[in-house]
Structure formats: C-alpha cells, structure tokens
Amino acid sequence: EPLWIRPDAPSRCTWQLGRPASESPHHHTAPAKSPKILPDILKKIGDTPMVRINKIGKKFGLKCELLAKCEFFNAGGSVKDRISLRMIEDAERDGTLKPGDTIIEPTSGNTGIGLALAAAVRGYRCIIVMPEKMSSEKVDVLRALGAEIVRTPTNARFDSPESHVGVAWRLKNEIPNSHILDQYRNASNPLAHYDTTADEILQQCDGKLDMLVASVGTGGTITGIARKLKEKCPGCRIIGVDPEGSILAEPEELNQTEQTTYEVEGIGYDFIPTVLDRTVVDKWFKSNDEEAFTFARMLIAQEGLLCGGSAGSTVAVAVKAAQELQEGQRCVVILPDSVRNYMTKFLSDRWMLQKGFLKEEDLTEKKPWWWHLRVQELGLSAPLTVLPTITCGHTIEILREKGFDQAPVVDEAGVILGMVTLGNMLSSLLAGKVQPSDQVGKVIYKQFKQIRLTDTLGRLSHILEMDHFALVVHEQIQYHSTGKSSQRQMVFGVVTAIDLLNFVAAQERDQK
C-alpha cells in the first residue's frame, strides 16, 4: 500500500453525458421521505430548503428570480454533511469501515464536522487534520463531537509532509485500522450531490432553472449537481466560483495573481482535486475576500440567511453572472454553511477592521482624538531585521541585547519573508524542534498583521487588541530589464502597544 495517494490523481470516472444510468458502476440512493420521529440526527441530513432572495437581486438590477439552496440546514450545519454520511455509508457497505475503526480526514473543517457527527452516532474514533487558518468555532464544535484535532501550517503546499493532507496520511500509516475516506478522491463525494442535492433542486424548481452558481473546494458539490442538471435540464448554465489565490478556475489566465492566501474558508485549493470535473462548468468567476464577507453580511442583514463567507462569494458572483438572465428565468445559488463557524471572524466588526474589510468610518461609535491620525505620526525608528541564514542562537542574543521581542526576517534585497519572535524561538528550542545552530528560517511564521503608514491609529489599535505587534510595510514598484514591473513589500518598522501608548501619553502631556 502506498504511503500516500495524491489528492489530485487523474480521475478514473467514466461518467458521460447521455450515458444510461443503468451502466453506472456505483451504488445510487434515492431521496427517502422522513418519518415524523427521526431514529437519529443523521436522518436530518439532506432535504434542505430552497429560499427566495428578495432584496439583493433587485438591489443589483437582476431581472431573474434568485433562489438560495440553504445547505446550513443540514444536521452539522453545512453541505459537507451529505458527503460525510455518504462516504461512511459506502465504506461500511463495501466492508472497508468496521466497528471500532478510526476515521482520519484532512479538511478545512466542515467535512470534519460532518464526519465527527456521523462518527459520534456510529461509534468510530475520528481524527481531523486541518490548517491553522480555520476558525476556532470549527475546532470547538469538533472537540465537542469527540474528534481529535491536529493543526497544520496554512501556507504548507498540499504535497508537503507538513500539509493537512501529508499529516493525515502519516497518521494513517501509524494508526492500525485507520482510514482516510479522502473527500478529494472519493466518488461518494460527487455521488452524494448527484443522487440527492441535484434531485432536490430539480424537484423544488419543478425542473425549471436557467443558471446554477456554486463555490468550489473539493469540487464534489458542483460536479455532482452539474452532471445531473446537464442530464435533466441541459439549458442550465453552470457557474463556478473560485477565490483569488486558488488555481481551480479555467482558463488558467484567471488564476494569475501574486496573491497566495485568502481568508474565506472551505473553497479554493492549490491543486485540482480528483473529484472535480471542470468540463461540466460553463464559466468560472474569481471572487475576493472583501466581496465575500460584504455579501455574507448582506445576506444575514437583508435576507435573514445566517450563512458563512463562501455563501457571500457565491452570491457576489451570482449578481454578476445572472445579469444575462431575463424576467421569468431563474438562478439558484448554493449557500454551503452557517455563520456559526465564523462568529469571531467576519461577523465581528473588530475582525473586519483588522483585516481591512471594514473602515473605521463605517462604525458610528465615538472615537478618541488620536483615532484618525496616521501611523506615520508615530515617528517610528528604523527596524531591526535579520536574514533567514542567521542562526536561532545568534538571533536570540541580538533580540535580548537590543531589547526586542520580535524581528522581521528579510532577504538580501529587503523583501519581507516573515517574522521571528523570542517566545516562538525559545519554545521551539525547548520542544526540540530546532537547535541553536539551525537557521532562523526554520522558525519563520507568517501569521502576523501588516499595516501601512497611511493607515489610521484606530486601525492599529484594533490590531493591537488581539496581537502583540504589527509590521509596518510599504510597497515598492521595481522595474526589470524586460520592461515588466513587480510590486514588493518592504519593512518600514515594527509597532507595539507600548509605542502607541507612549505616543498618546506624550501628545497629551505636551497639550497640557
């Protein structure tokens, strides 16, 4: 057995438009009618409502009807409940999964919650491996369901041993009777949507819809739904939504950006999952974080739909894509998950301010006199920076000697690579993860907040409520011999709460 199987392995699926269902090699399930009293909570997966979006479509000038398939009504709160249950049931049916076995899954959280929910009911041990950027709410729900959680670096490539995929496979090879159901490759993922989600949409719309818009992560949702719609409703256009920084969209030119990270969760990847059939997507749109969270908040405030950030991405694209539809036509959007997962993220004004998705003037509360002053007023001194090749031991000596707790790590040209902190280095040394002679590049981390000289002290204040420091950066445009230009970030300084307090105190003292 291989040590790991690539999540982007070539698909062996034989589905073709027009091929009889009787030739399918898979076990198919028909939607079942729910009894009045459910035998367990797993029976509350599927049969989610279709809700008309009344205000947002009109606000953006849509002539067509805009409908939302509300997947956050599933038992675990997301569309991923469907595939989690289906993968477990299919693994039980073919004898792969037996009582007492362990389920391991690399996930952005929602599939993990679905699997942990099913594992709690069915009696399996469950280990979820997820990147650090995923919300604390997801972690809390997983723990409450009895799952064990392993976190991995957000910026690790999918084929790196440190990625959530790599760590999951390492655990599988170490733990007896453990299984990775593997949402990236498992046919049960798109089949769950082909058999149930798509049929529900067709039934709820009486077979009449002209466009379907869905955000894409593993691709199982859009693949399964689109294949069924292509068979039953061939005139329906399928629109895929991919965040900026991901590479799922086609044509490839759409993916060209210097951005590699994004805040919206559960969609987009740096590889093409095996289950994603991009041939059934008629057109791709890219979405960005700001519009995703703005539209998610709009869905909550104006439509009462308590959905997550990827739902915002989907609707932001839908109001663009559906401009081509006329009166009497219908566009369906998939709202994948609930706001429950993001209470401390985009639902929080403070978080939105820190990330730059909300401006101070958007909030009406009274601010102190210094709130709208610029960061450049602080008069920061030149920063202490270190090269990635310097040793951890030497870096600790320098920081202690100069009285700093942290320093930016830059390359020879001064471009920011990340940050090192005294606390992080000492804990890594004590844990045996690094040696004093190791290069400081081994303990770089990139989960820090950046701020510009033109940003306000109010925004800085919000950042420092949650973080010990902020890195002050400025952009530099560099022209190359080819005539092309590129933008790079340079370090201007490091600012802490002490710097802000000293500035405010000094100004008030001078005024007296």
Rank of each mutant, 00 (worst) to 15 (best):
A382F: 14
Q256W: 11
E324Y: 14
S348G: 01
K320A: 09
A301S: 04
R350L: 12
A316T: 05
I463G: 11
E324V: 13
T389P: 14
I398N: 09
A301W: 07
T482M: 11
S428Y: 08
T274P: 05
K433I: 07
Q450L: 12
Q302N: 15
D270W: 01
L417Y: 09
I390L: 10
T314M: 11
V443M: 15
V281W: 01
V491G: 11
E263G: 04
T385I: 12
L353F: 15
I451S: 01
K433M: 10
I334F: 08
E291M: 15
I300G: 01
L299I: 15
R400H: 09
C307F: 06
A311V: 06
E253C: 06
T274C: 01
A382N: 15
K433H: 15
K402S: 14
K433S: 08
Q478R: 12
V241W: 04
E265A: 01
R350V: 07
H394C: 04
I238S: 01
L429D: 14
F357Q: 12
H462G: 12
T454Y: 15
A301G: 13
M298K: 13
T456V: 12
D455F: 05
E258V: 09
K449F: 08
T482Y: 11
A292K: 06
G356C: 06
I396V: 10
A431T: 14
F469E: 13
Y445I: 12
W351E: 13
T385C: 01
Q302G: 06
L325G: 06
D270C: 06
F346M: 10
Q376S: 08
D362A: 15
L417E: 06
K446Q: 15
L422V: 13
L363Q: 07
H468I: 13
V495W: 09
Q302R: 09
Y269S: 01
T279S: 09
D349R: 01
V440E: 04
G441D: 13
H394V: 15
Q259W: 07
L353P: 03
E265S: 06
V275H: 01
V315L: 14
S246L: 01
T482S: 12
Q447D: 11
E252T: 13
P243V: 09
G245D: 05
L460I: 01
T314Q: 14
K449M: 09
L335V: 12
E397F: 11
M466F: 12
I396C: 09
I267P: 08
N424E: 08
K446W: 13
N341T: 01
Q323S: 06
T421R: 14
V443S: 14
K449W: 12
V241S: 12
G268F: 01
E365A: 09
L305P: 04
L325Y: 01
S313L: 05
K433V: 10
L500A: 13
F357Y: 09
I238G: 01
I390F: 06
A506V: 07
S485L: 10
K320P: 01
V410D: 08
L373Y: 13
T389Y: 10
I396L: 12
L358W: 05
G418V: 03
T279F: 09
Q489D: 01
E244W: 01
F293W: 01
R340C: 04
Q329P: 01
L500P: 12
V386Q: 07
M352A: 04
V415K: 01
D270G: 06
S381A: 15
E361A: 01
L325K: 03
W284F: 05
G403F: 07
Q302S: 12
F271E: 01
F271H: 06
S313P: 15
V386N: 05
G245L: 01
K433F: 12
R297T: 01
E365I: 14
Y269N: 01
V241G: 09
M298T: 15
T260S: 12
K402M: 11
R297H: 01
S428H: 01
L347R: 03
L422P: 04
K366P: 15
E253N: 15
I238R: 01
D349A: 07
I396Y: 07
T274V: 04
Q487A: 11
G414R: 13
V275S: 05
L363P: 13
E412H: 15
L248H: 07
L299V: 14
L429R: 14
W369G: 13
C307S: 13
I398T: 14
R297I: 06
P243M: 11
K442T: 14
C392I: 13
G304T: 04
P436H: 13
F469R: 06
M490W: 09
Q259V: 15
V281G: 04
Q323R: 13
T496A: 12
